[in-house]
């Protein structure tokens, strides 16, 4: 942000000194509403989160200061550790499954653009716009035992081995079932994001590649992939930060269960804060989520500084 200040400003001309005062008043009045909102609902709660995280608080009565005790206890808390593990597992598999899938679809949609594939971008993005409650509902619809889509389709086909599985109630399958629904619901975003980036590659590059007789696969891997390396890294960071904040889908599909099988950091926060009314610990989890997502966001910007000049 080193653009010259006032370069584009409608700055006060010398002739109109009278307006100078107005200018500051105008700036002040324009920024005031935004800052009132942020002060009340963001700056104050942020400060409070750090404070409450250092106290033993249940929302009622005194809040004795206990230093870093809440944080220390978190790291011996089975549920929290399960949440941490799931969140990073989730991020890892989002990156190695959803991103390559998104790349293949985005590339094919742009490379083989024709009458049939033209409208598909909107179809692939549709599930991203659905409220998470609807996504969870459809997820249960697919995986429900006995009457769910998988169960009833496989029993109609006579596949007994498949029709008896309770996907969301199974310790080993629940996590992957929720993950599958998330892949269905959220791969649309990387698809449209990558399509926009692939579309920026100059036509000449593609025409040159076609003249050289390179195949679609070769063009995708050798020319397009290097061009969108940076957008892919941004998507990887977004996936990671998104995983850290994961709450809606596992909470509505499995409530974190069975046991702790689908617990995330968001769910441990919710359970500690709003089920067990342990504000101190919940606030500490909030700080952990914040610090981790900040760390990954900073990583994104340091990528930007090192490699940003490479593309576009």
């Amino acid at each position: 942000m080193s653009e010259r200040p006032g370069k584009q400003a409608i700055g006060p001309s010398r002739k109109r000194r009278v307006r100078d005062g107005n200018r500051s008043v105008f700036i002040f009045l324009c920024l005031l509403p935004a800052f009132i909102f942020l002060a009340v609902f963001l700056y104050y709660p942020i400060e409070e989160t750090f404070r409450i995280a250092m106290t033993k608080s249940s929302g009622l009565g005194p809040e004795p200061y206990i230093g870093f005790d809440n944080y220390a206890k978190l790291f011996s808390n089975e549920e929290f550790l399960a949440g941490l593990l799931h969140v990073f597992t989730w991020a890892f598999f989002s990156i190695i499954i959803q991103l390559p899938l998104a790349f293949l679809i985005a590339f094919s949609l742009t490379f083989y653009a024709n009458r049939f594939t033209g409208g598909l971008r909107a179809v692939f993005y549709l599930s991203n716009v659905l409220p998470s409650a609807i996504t969870a509902m459809l997820g249960r619809f697919i995986f429900a035992p006995k009457y769910g889509i998988i169960a009833s389709l496989s029993s109609t086909l006579g596949w007994k081995w498949l029709s008896g599985i309770d996907f969301l109630g199974n310790q080993d399958l629940a996590f992957w079932s929720v993950f599958a629904i998330a892949t269905w619901a959220y791969t649309g975003f990387p698809i449209i994001y990558l399509m926009a980036r692939i579309d920026q590659i100059p036509k000449e590059v593609r025409e040159a590649a076609e003249l050289d007789g390179s195949t679609g696969w070769h063009y995708a891997m050798k020319i397009v992939l290097p061009e969108i390396g940076y957008p892919l890294r941004i998507l990887a960071v977004l996936s990671t930060v998104g995983s850290l904040r994961l709450f809606d889908l596992p909470n509505m599909m499995t409530s974190g269960g069975p046991g702790n099988a689908t617990v995330t950091l968001g769910i441990t926060l919710y359970r500690h804060g709003f089920v067990n009314w342990n504000y101190g610990k919940a606030a500490a989890i909030g700080v952990v989520i914040f610090v981790l997502s900040l760390a990954f966001t900073v990583a994104q910007f340091s990528f930007g500084n090192r490699k940003g000049g490479e593309t576009t």
Partner: peptide, 18 residues
């Protein structure tokens, strides 16, 4: 822009109390 980087989860407890 600080607000852009703060996850809603972080401030749930104080938000509710307030």
């Amino acid at each position: 822009m600080v607000g852009y980087f703060v996850p809603a989860q972080m401030v749930l407890i104080p938000l509710y109390k307030m």
